[in-house]
């Protein structure tokens, strides 16, 4: 019996002393292999009296189990040390530049255009487009701007010939929509698109720019509805605290016509550089669709009324992001465009 205890103690000591996995394997072979010390102790069992055998067997098993469990523990400990060493060897320089996943983003004009489209889509408006090369008929005549009307002076036009031109405003989409939907009212649309005027390019003028116009035609549509709708737009675009005001204006397409000012989002209406001290920023032109416009499209102006509004996408983008020169929108400098990759 004492032999068993001695073997166990010696085995445990040898396990404890092992400093690597190969020494540990040696110890395992010495003690626990088929010809190992534990096995040879076991072979002594057959010489024992049968009554002593169970106790002897139990001792041997206990010895074997303890050695095995000590081996397992030691083996895990040594494996952990080896892994630590290997990992330490796998050291990397975490300060090296990252693998870049360049983020592309939409052009700021697209961002603003889609933001406005989406605000109106959430209110049930369809998004409608039209041709940029359009007929004088839709751009001017149907918008209540007959030939030789002085209002045509305000928007110098790129003509292709006597009939065709580059549209000067997205009102051309509205006049087409009115005609197409004359028998399918109500109309509730926003019309985004590129427009063109015969202007020399400078910091505030561009021969090409982007407009979004909106049009609602139905029964009992009022100027108050226009005010409510644009109030929502102003709050969605420039923050909950914004208010709007109407000022009388003149557009051939509408009567009454209004300019729409939004309280300045920079100074909260106190007056600053952006609003030129007035506390208000002129953003939209709007009004009630002129009855003659409805008539020309074949819509009964006695039964139906409507409102229309329009805004310049570049102007909104410039205000929103503080862009100081409209030409940035068309030069496409990577350093400019990549400013707009944040979610805002």
């Amino acid at each position: 019996m004492k032999d068993i205890t001695d073997v166990k103690e010696a085995g445990l000591a040898a396990i404890e002393k092992s400093t690597d996995l190969s020494q540990l394997t040696q110890v395992r072979n010495e003690y626990l292999s088929k010809k190992g010390l534990v096995a040879s102790l076991m072979s002594g069992m057959k010489d024992l009296d049968a009554s002593l055998r169970p106790a002897f067997g139990a001792l041997i098993n206990n010895c074997k189990e303890e050695l095995e469990s000590a081996l397992k523990l030691k083996q895990d400990a040594l494996a952990m040390i080896a892994l630590q060493a290997k990992m330490a060897n796998d050291w990397i320089d975490i300060t090296l530049p990252a693998t870049e996943f360049p983020v592309g983003n939409l052009h700021p004009l697209t961002l603003v255009q889609q933001e406005i489209e989406d605000i109106f889509r959430s209110m049930g408006y369809k998004v409608v487009e039209g041709p940029e090369v359009d007929l004088d008929l839709y751009n001017f005549e149907r918008a209540n701007i007959p030939a030789d009307h002085p209002a045509r002076d305000m928007q110098d036009t790129f003509y292709v010939d006597s009939q065709w031109l580059l549209r000067t405003h997205t009102t051309a989409i509205q006049t087409r929509t009115l005609e197409e939907s004359a028998n399918n009212l109500p109309i509730k649309v926003v019309c985004p698109g590129k427009v063109y005027r015969r202007d020399d390019d400078d910091a505030t003028h561009s021969h090409q720019f982007t407009q979004i116009e909106g049009l609602v035609v139905g029964e009992n549509i009022t100027l108050a509805d226009l005010k409510g709708t644009l109030q929502l737009l102003a709050k969605s675009m420039f923050g909950e605290a914004r208010v709007i005001r109407f000022r009388p204006s003149y557009f051939q397409f509408t009567e009454p016509s209004v300019e729409v000012d939004v309280s300045c989002h920079i100074c909260n209406g106190k007056g600053c550089n952006v609003c030129k001290g007035s506390g208000w920023i002129e953003i939209l032109g709007a009004g009630m669709v002129h009855p003659h416009v409805l008539d020309m499209a074949g819509i009964d102006g006695k039964k139906y009324t409507g409102f229309a509004f329009g805004l310049g996408v570049e102007r909104v983008a410039m205000l929103k992001y503080g862009i100081d020169d409209i030409r940035h929108c068309y030069i496409n400098d990577a350093r400019f465009l990549s400013l707009f990759k944040r979610f805002e």
Partner: peptide, 26 residues
Amino acid sequence: EEVIRMVGYEKIVATLPLMPQTIGLL
């Protein structure tokens, strides 16, 4: 227009169009 110009546009109380619901579509 002349009337509201003289009365003042601030007299208009903002409302939203009352019309059949439409779905905002692309």
